[in-house]
């Protein structure tokens, strides 16, 4: 059944690794709906969080083919229930709209915060799930929204036990052992 899944991939820091991962999705015609990557707490190890609409059976195979890549440590597929996740959105709104008292209520109700204010515009930040971010977008729309942008997903796995320890263990190992 097609539904949204989160794929997480732990990789070495290597130019071109994103391409290596994404072509495996492309080959099977799976569209990536968001992709976030950043270095983990261990320097030199990166984590990718990829969201896709697909089915689990297919994604298990995709993950297997990703794991086979030389510079990949591990890859996992998770459904919605297996991860705690957040996305972040920024909203740039005309400062004039601040004269309207409703804006304050929108900010409060959404637990949003103001990052900057200038005479022309101010920028709000909100984290949450996509629907919540879009919900606030729709509320701001009538008040002179200038620009909206949203991040991909960051996710933490509910069933993980010792990812942090495992990454620290990795950091103790040399990337390779080119031997004398």
């Amino acid at each position: 059944m097609q539904k949204e899944y989160t794929v997480t991939v732990y990789t070495e820091d290597r130019c071109g690794i994103t391409n290596r991962i994404t072509v495996i999705f492309t080959r099977r015609g799976i569209n990536i709906t968001s992709l976030t990557t950043a270095e983990t707490e261990v320097p030199g190890i990166y984590k990718f969080v990829i969201t896709v609409m697909s089915n689990r059976e297919l994604l298990e195979k995709v993950v297997g083919q990703i794991e086979r890549l030389i510079e990949i440590h591990r890859a996992f597929v998770h459904d919605e229930d297996e991860v705690v996740y957040q996305e972040l959105a920024l909203y740039k709104v005309s400062t004039k709209s601040l004269h309207n008292g409703d804006i304050e209520k929108i900010i409060r109700d959404n637990n949003a915060r103001i990052l900057t204010i200038t005479p022309d515009y101010f920028v709000l930040e909100k984290t949450g799930h996509q629907q919540e971010l879009i919900g606030m977008l729709q509320k701001l729309e009538p008040y002179g929204l200038i620009e909206y942008t949203k991040s991909g997903r960051v996710a933490i796995v509910k069933w993980s036990r010792r990812f942090h320890e495992h990454l620290k263990d990795l950091s103790l190992l040399e990337a390779d052992n080119l031997k004398d």
């Binding site: 070495e12 030389i70 990795l170 190992l173 040399e174 990337a175 390779d176 052992n177 080119l178 031997k179």
Partner: peptide
């Protein structure tokens, strides 16, 4: 020249 027989992620 050093031969290789180990890569951390492989």
């Amino acid at each position: 020249y050093k031969a290789c027989d180990y890569i951390r992620s492989y």
